[in-house]
């Protein structure tokens, strides 16, 4: 949020929803932000949107429906 990004956590547990909502009463300082920045692996946790095999397996059916 300190990067100005809109964030959308998901949970179906009310207690975790409340925990995730509890972000307005603190700030990370520059050192913490730098430390967070160093964690970047530059790798999606889902799939590579430029990988033809991934695109075919996830979107193949939908794109086929589009062509018909």
């Amino acid at each position: 949020m300190q990067r100005g990004i809109v964030v959308i956590p998901k949970s179906v547990h009310k207690a975790r929803m409340a925990e995730n909502f509890n972000v307005f009463d603190f700030n990370l300082d520059d050192d913490d932000m730098k430390l967070m920045s160093s964690l970047d692996k530059n790798e999606s946790q889902f799939f590579d949107h430029r990988d033809p095999a991934a695109i075919e397996s996830i979107f193949g059916q939908s794109l086929k429906a589009l062509r018909n």
């Binding site: 949020m1 990004i5 956590p9 998901k10 949970s11 179906v12 929803m17 909502f21």
Partner: peptide
């Protein structure tokens, strides 16, 4: 700037309750 997402909650009853809870929580 803070929202609530329902990706991978295909059960309609679970999703409805989750969104109700989220609105109660302040989302």
């Amino acid at each position: 700037q803070l929202g609530f997402g329902v990706f991978q909650v295909p059960d309609l009853n679970v999703a409805e309750e989750a969104v109700s809870d989220a609105l109660d929580t302040g989302y």
